[in-house]
Design a protein around this nucleic acid. Structure first.
Length: 518
DNA sequence: CGACGGGACGC
DNA sequence: CGACGGGACGC
């Protein structure tokens, strides 16, 4: 076995050689992991033939048929590099064993780097299990409902404390096929931090022989967020869902309503928007049907909130009166029974739409008795489209909902003038600039709201708040993006919380990470 | 005023 | 059995 030094040097040589590639430019053959295939083919197989077979699974970044250095004779092996591991895995699953033009079967494996020895074939179990960080309150069902959209799950496992039964904050998901695990790693919410699980027997125990345990603070990113930990009991154990594929933008943000660039003059316009926190089984069509009972609906969308196991709807009316009326009548409406919807305005107009204020009174006047009767009849007569039985809405339910513990989803509203959303930089991108973010209130905005705001300057790697603190950090992969964030967001409000945004001091010099007795 | 998160499975 | 080509960029 090579010494660590030799290994490093060997890896460097690999990288030097392999960064150089064909006319498409530089391709790092090891990035992302498991995105390159090793093929055993016939000596007569051409690159062209391989290209035709393999480009169905993704854009081929690099292809090579290995030839003898001197005789130029094909050796019957080849490499195919894709941009994504899921593409390579799919190609392996579909093409391994398939016949070539001469009738001989080909082998397709995940390629290994020169300095590594073992190959991974389509049967390799190491490619089908992922390791994920989750809230302690997660059940196996929660795990399943969040990861089944990526493929056929063999099992979900959650580690728990044996005495208290409390989750330890992580779990495992085993898929049937490598490409499914790869899709989960590529596309699941970043806060899960999904990675391929190391096979148990290959994990290194530390010198003391006990297993490394995650520190308590590991759960911080989930734990501080009331939205994350406080999944209402009614949302749990809802059983298998038949949700349409959730529609996230490229970086796991809820697209949300078009907002930003809010000025005080926009409050009237804002009062047309409602956000709805509701049961995950409700589809966009059902939401549209329900809110469409009130005239003036001109926009309706529903997003799955992966982390919260609930569903987030956005509704807009063409006039404030309809919105006010909809909130008045449908807030706390149990749909399905046992799952009250929670409806909110933008914070900015909450005060302006309650009590004796003229706008509200006007709205309630404008809505005719006829409309009200129509709404009521729908609620009582129509069969509930999803599941269970439709119930009478609690028409007179008070709308004075206090700042509820879990459902504050008016996450996208800000006083800042913001450019459009941009994709996040991959988690492993080197950080160029770190910002220190302080919130005026001890309860910071939900993470998705912060991500929504801070992603808009590009190259945001991550923003997080420290648990039970009013501050946190935003990491950027680019200085000018970070600068633009300061420019646009310092002193502004997100979700009613005023932010300070400034360059962070370098991280505290922690005494070297080492075992305290060594 | 407001300064620091980081991953593993009882056999 | 079946494991690696060609050669840019900017200092």
């Amino acid at each position: 076995m090579a010494s660590p030094g030799e290994r490093d040097r060997e890896n460097d040589k690999d990288r030097d050689r392999e960064m150089h590639s064909g006319y498409r430019g530089y391709v790092n053959l090891h990035e992302p992991p498991n995105s390159r295939l090793f093929l055993v083919v016939s000596r007569s197989t051409t690159e062209r033939e391989l290209r035709e077979m393999f480009d169905k699974f993704g854009e081929i970044q690099d292809i090579l048929s290995v030839k003898d250095k001197f005789t130029k004779e094909a050796k019957g092996v080849a490499y195919v590099k894709y941009g994504k591991s899921s593409q390579a895995c799919r190609a392996m699953e579909e093409l391994n064993g398939k016949s070539l033009s001469d009738g001989k079967p080909m082998k397709v494996l995940i390629a290994q780097s020169r300095s590594s020895s073992c190959g991974r074939d389509v049967e390799d179990e190491d490619l089908t299990r992922i390791f994920v960080m989750i809230p302690k309150s997660f059940t196996e069902e929660d795990l399943k409902s969040n990861f089944q959209e990526f493929g056929d799950i063999e099992y979900c496992r959650i580690q728990r404390d044996k005495v208290s039964g409390e989750g330890k904050g992580y779990g495992y998901v085993r898929y049937m096929r490598p490409s499914q695990a790869a899709l989960a790693i590529e596309n699941s919410d970043r806060r899960f931090r999904a990675i391929l699980a190391e096979p148990k027997y290959r994990l290194n125990p530390n010198p003391q022989g006990d297993w490394h345990q995650p520190p308590e603070s590991m759960h911080a990113n989930f734990g501080y967020d009331p939205c994350f930990q406080g999944v209402p009991p009614i949302f749990k154990n809802m059983g298998p869902k038949t949700l349409p594929l959730p529609h996230f933008d490229d970086f796991g943000c809820h697209p949300g309503p078009p907002l930003s660039n809010l000025t005080s003059d926009d409050s009237l316009d804002f009062s047309r928007w409602l956000s709805v926190t509701m049961d995950p089984c409700i589809t966009r069509e059902q939401l549209t049907a329900l809110f469409g009972l009130i005239p003036g609906l001109d926009f309706c969308d529903a997003q799955k909130d992966v982390i919260n196991s609930c569903r987030l709807g956005y509704v807009r009316y063409n006039n404030p009166a309809s919105a006010i009326y909809a909130k008045e009548k449908l807030n706390q409406f149990e749909y399905p029974p046992g799952s009250p919807m929670m409806i909110h305005f933008a914070k900015d107009v909450e005060a302006a739409t309650s009590g004796e204020n003229p706008l509200r009174l006007m709205a309630l006047q404008l809505v005719t008795a006829q409309v009200m009767a129509e709404v009521s009849s729908h609620f009582t007569d129509r069969a509930q489209p999803g599941r269970g039985q439709m119930v009478q809405p609690q028409m007179m339910q008070s709308t004075q909902q206090t700042r509820h513990a879990n459902g504050d989803f008016e996450t996208s509203f800000t006083t800042a003038r913001l450019p459009p959303k941009q994709p996040l930089a991959p988690m492993n991108t080197p950080m160029k600039e770190r910002l220190f973010v302080v919130c005026s209130s001890s309860a910071p905005p939900p993470p998705e709201a912060l991500t929504n705001a801070f992603c808009r300057f590009g190259n945001l790697i991550e923003i997080y708040m420290l648990p039970s603190k009013s501050y946190g950090y935003a990491k950027y992969a680019d200085e000018s993006s970070a600068k633009a964030a300061i420019e646009a967001l310092h002193g502004q409000e997100v979700c009613g919380v005023r932010l300070k945004v400034l360059p962070a001091d370098p991280p505290k010099e922690e005494a070297r990470k080492r075992k305290h007795t060594v």
